[in-house]
């Protein structure tokens, strides 16, 4: 799968409270959550972004609470994927479970500037900066994660396990 879009660049430690504030956690409806995505870090985020755009950030993206509402909100807002130096661990596994593609790459995170046009080849983990022509490689995902994806996510995997 390939994604392409504009980069929206943020700093380190983007936490789940700014991705989706608790005041909106009285629902798990994706389209409702999407309306408030990134609101506390960038008030007009939802208005500005176009479908396919990406979030690029520093280290520890998604730190804080275990709320799955965070990857749900990002995905439902139209963002195609998140590229960061590193991800907080609960966010990392939630993203897989929610089907939000995420890519870990220090080089890309350091290098990509706000408004750069980016293309990501998800299967090969290759990130291309169309604005500068630079190419970066994302850290490969663990084999087990690939198995999970192949089984159709955690749901498919649960089915397999229960039918054993």
């Amino acid at each position: 799968m390939k994604f392409s879009g504009r980069a929206w660049v943020y700093g380190d430690n983007v936490d789940t409270d700014v991705i989706i504030p608790a005041r909106y956690l009285n629902t798990s409806d994706a389209s409702e959550l999407a309306k408030h995505c990134m609101e506390d870090i960038d008030e007009n985020f939802v208005k500005k972004i176009k479908k396919g755009d990406m979030i690029v950030a520093g280290y520890n993206f998604g730190s804080g609470s275990s709320r799955e509402h965070a990857p749900i909100a990002i995905k439902a807002s139209g963002v195609s994927c998140v590229i960061a130096k590193s991800f907080a661990r609960i966010f990392y596994r939630n993203s897989f479970n929610m089907g939000l593609p995420i890519f870990e790459s220090s080089d890309a995170a350091d290098d990509i500037k706000d408004a750069d046009e980016i293309e990501v080849d998800a299967d090969r983990g290759v990130i291309k900066n169309l604005t500068t022509g630079k190419i970066y490689k994302a850290t490969p995902i663990p084999e087990f994660m690939q198995e999970l994806i192949n089984a159709g996510g955690l749901f498919g995997y649960a089915k397999e396990l229960l039918n054993k």
């Binding site: 804080g64 275990s66 479970n97 649960a158």
Partner: peptide, 28 residues
């Protein structure tokens, strides 16, 4: 809930996860 790590104070291995992961644990 991310603060599930609290319970390690009693010598347990305790960690927070997302709802889907915990749903998986509920079922399996």
């Amino acid at each position: 809930d991310s603060h599930t790590c609290t319970h390690g104070a009693l010598g347990a291995f305790a960690t927070g996860m997302g709802s889907t992961d915990v749903g998986f644990a509920f079922a399996t």
